[in-house]
Every structure is written in structure tokens, then in C-alpha cells.
Simulated assay, not measured.
Amino acid sequence: MEQQQLFQKSLKKLGLKSVIPENMQLINSEEFKEFIKILYLPSGYTVTIDFTIHKTIAPSLIFVSPNQFMKIEEVGIAPGYLIFYNRDFYCIQIHDAEVACDGLLFNNIHNMPLVSLPDEEAEFTNYLFAQISGEIELNDSSLEEMIRTYLKQLLIKSTRIWKRQHLEKAVSEQPGDLEFFRNFTLLVDVHFRKKHSVADYADLLSIAPKTITHKFKRLNLPQPNDVIKNRVILEAKRLLVHTGKTAKEIAYELGYDDPAYFSRLFQLKTGESPSGFRLKYHGEAEN
């Protein structure tokens, strides 16, 4: 496989890039920030997604949304691969009925984007990447649909493995519970800047707030109020670290009219003030 291959037609774009030491500066730059990304990494890699560190102990797939921060901290001995594409090429929201991965592989409430691959699944994943690479090289008139077909297979297979690895068995086997998990996740990700209470999401789901709380308890999930607040805090961390906005500006952006209340919430959730978190993060990054 070449170090980078690219398919581009009109506004549609998909690329495949080798994850090797000489490419790390580019991969960790802003170059791919706007794309949906899938990392396929052998063992021995360390990757930070937002503020969570993931270490690969087996061949693994990591799914990264355009709004997430990604940095490969350590490179393993064997090369990995990065596939990146835009929503014009394949939008998981529009095609949700085909792959049902939104809220699981991408944008999930627990920030669990990693799938570890058993040997037989790693072989199939190698096959899919080889086929995508071959199609790009072939440059045939039908390659766009072929690449999209292989990408869909990758997403469907990964979603099945993700459910086995990250969800309680009872949840993954009950379609109704799984859809509730996904729907709540997606609603929080869309509305967390303005809707901060369980009652807000109960209205969106047309159920009673107590029903949400009971479902979360039955599914062995954190309290729904904590899920909502944790999503707000994650966004606040991103804005503190990756922008120059003040804590007051961030509070207003996240729907809090009282910046002092927001600062207390941030301190309660992280153990640090917004300004303290920013200073600490940038200090560690420099070291």
C-alpha cells in the first residue's frame, strides 16, 4: 500500500494513509480534523482521543468524529492505516439504517471508540483495507460504489464487535434497549449546549424522566444527569484547550447564563477550575 492514496470526485473525498513514524507529524496535525477517521492499528500504539488514552494490545480499530481531538502518542513496530473521508462521501447519520453505528462507534456517551479485533476479524479487516486500496489504484468508473460497499462492511462488522465488547450482554441482545441507548446518546450529542436536564430529554423522547432513570439503572449505565453533564464538561475541556475563549465565553456557549455556576460545575466534575485545567493541560503538553 502506498503511503497515501486518495479518491476525490466533486465534493466527495476518501483517503487512505499509512501510519508510520515519518507520517506522524502530518497525521497529528490539523490536516485531517474535518474528516471522519478510522484508525487501524496493530499492537503497541498509544492514541489520545480527546482526553482519554487508548493503548492497543491487539489489532484495533479506533473511530474518530470530526469534532474530536486525536493524537497518536506512540507508534508500534508494525505500520497501521488511517482511512479518512467526508460526509459527502458517506454520512453515517443519513445512512444510519444501513450501518447503525452512530451513537456506538461514533459519538457515544462513554467515549469508547476502540474495537479490539480477534484474529479472524483482523484478517477480514486486512482484506477490506486491501480491497479499498486496490479500488483506489484501479481508478475504475465503478470504484466509488465499491469503496463505499467495503466501508459499510467495515462499519457493520465493527459495530457488531463493539456491542459485544462494550455493552452488557443483555443490552446488546435486546434491540429496544440498544435503540434507547443510541437514541439518548445521539440526542445528548445534538442538544447538550441548550438542554441540561433529564426532563429536557424525556420531553424529546416522549417518556417520563423516571423512565429514563430506570432504564439507565437496568442497563447498568451511569445516572442520565451525569451523562448529560459529562458531555458538557467534555466540550468545555475541548474549548479550554483548543481555543482562546475565556471561561465566561465558554459558559455562555454551552448554555449557562451564570458563569459562576458553570465554573462550580466544572470544578465539581474535574477537581479543577476552568483556568486551572487550561494551565495544567498546556503545561503538561509543553513537558
Rank of each mutant, 00 (worst) to 15 (best):
R278I: 05
I94H: 04
T125E: 06
A122T: 01
K13V: 07
H214L: 10
V99S: 10
E137V: 15
T211P: 14
C91H: 13
L268D: 07
H54C: 06
F181R: 01
E2H: 08
G76H: 04
E31A: 12
P113T: 01
R182N: 01
F7N: 09
D102V: 00
N108H: 08
G44T: 10
P224R: 00
N230Y: 04
N108S: 06
T211Y: 13
K37I: 12
K169V: 00
A251K: 06
K163G: 02
T46R: 12
K280W: 05
I62W: 02
R193C: 08
S43R: 02
F192R: 00
T246Y: 09
E145P: 01
H282R: 15
L178P: 00
F129R: 04
P66R: 06
L26E: 15
S141M: 11
V190W: 06
L219W: 12
A208R: 13
A199S: 13
R231N: 02
E98Q: 12
S43H: 05
V47N: 00
E22H: 14
P59Q: 03
F277T: 01
L26S: 13
Q131I: 07
N139L: 15
G76V: 04
C91R: 15
N86R: 03
Y150W: 15
S142I: 11
S43C: 02
N86L: 09
S158H: 07
N126E: 03
S172C: 02
D88A: 10
Q8Y: 13
R238Q: 08
T246V: 08
R218C: 10
V19G: 08
N230K: 03
F277C: 01
T243K: 13
P259L: 03
Y150K: 13
F124I: 11
T243F: 11
N225D: 10
K280H: 10
T52E: 06
